[in-house]
């Protein structure tokens, strides 16, 4: 899989549960579970190769240059430590701030994520805060080391809808102020439309289509993307909601050829045997589907390779 992201840009990573979104994110920061490892490929960050770095080198990057916001605000704060301590840690270890400058840094961060009366709130414990507030604290922790990339792994899934909207606005504002790049992992296409500049659609551990956000919504090239867009409920539509038939495949025993072919309404014979390669139907637009090859072959009499 391959994707690129510029400073200040937001990339959406979309896909069903189990399509490898979170694993992709964890492999960027080198925190895969014990059983997993990176077998190939590369992660280039500000010109540095991350996959060959030692854990010690990665530690200096995590929290300082790449930060992450996890899914569950109720579980991602340590219940026994004060908010101050948890927000202060990245600045304490990476920037080596101490004493008064550390305190004012934490207050500043909490103010940035709109925690009211931060000097008072930072002495409290996570259980004294609501879910929305905790997730904003997690946001403050992500910003604490002054990162240039924040990976947000479904940050609003566990928040209720009004709080979700607030949180997304907050992230946008922060991005505007700090110029941080954002990878936004979600399965909510509405959020993608609101937040992202570009989108990568994942299926079975691979990016099957990648495009600027408007282009992907207006002219999706991959049947999976089309199916995904088709299964978004629309206001006023009385027809039953479209659901993609079948289940996402077991990643341990992927179907041959294109992993989507058993569920694909437009599958060609070759889809069962040959894994599709990336085709580029437009500038900055890529999709892995043999259908595009056929179009190309029909119109230009040649095939991409």
């Amino acid at each position: 899989m391959s994707f690129a992201l510029r400073a200040g840009e937001t990339l959406g990573l979309v896909g069903e549960s189990g399509s490898g979104k979170t694993t992709t994110c964890m492999s960027i920061v080198g925190l895969l579970p014990r059983a997993a490892r990176i077998v190939g490929g590369s992660v280039l960050f500000e010109g540095e190769e991350l996959t060959t770095k030692s854990q010690r080198e990665l530690r200096a990057i995590r929290g300082r240059r790449i930060a992450m916001i996890l899914q569950d605000p109720m579980a991602s704060l340590n219940p026994l430590f004060t908010i101050f301590r948890q927000v202060a840690e990245p600045a304490f270890f990476h920037q080596r701030l101490r004493g008064r400058s550390l305190r004012s840094r934490v207050q500043h961060l909490l103010k940035a994520v709109r925690i009211p009366s931060p000097e008072w709130r930072m002495r409290e414990y996570p259980h004294q805060m609501s879910g929305g507030m905790r997730q904003r604290i997690v946001g403050a922790i992500a910003l604490a080391g002054g990162p240039s990339l924040v990976i947000a792994d479904e940050p609003t899934t566990n928040l209720d809808v009004t709080i979700q909207a607030q949180y997304l606005d907050l992230l946008k504002d922060i991005q505007r102020e700090t110029g941080v790049a954002l990878i936004f992992v979600t399965h909510n296409l509405g959020i993608v439309a609101k937040m992202c500049d570009r989108v990568a659609v994942m299926y079975a551990g691979k990016i099957v289509e990648q495009a600027p956000v408007r282009e992907l919504f207006d002219d999706p090239k991959h049947p999976y993307t089309r199916a995904l867009l088709g299964s978004v409920p629309k206001l006023g539509n009385k027809d039953p909601l479209y659901a993609i038939p079948g289940q996402p495949p077991n990643l341990a025993s992927l179907p041959s050829g294109c992993a989507f072919h058993p569920r694909c309404p437009e599958a060609l014979p070759r889809c069962a045997d040959e894994e599709p390669i990336d085709f580029h139907p437009g500038a900055g637009h890529a999709a892995r589907c043999w259908r595009l090859d056929e179009h190309a072959a029909a119109s230009h009499g040649r095939s991409h390779s």
Binding site: L31, A67, S76, N78, F81
Partner: peptide, 22 residues
């Protein structure tokens, strides 16, 4: 295995701090 330990690692804290304190 908890999320807050994952977050502590994501902060780039040394292993000793993650294990001995968090």
């Amino acid at each position: 295995g908890s999320e807050y330990i994952k977050l502590a690692r994501l902060k780039g804290l040394p292993d000793v701090v993650v294990i001995a304190m968090h």
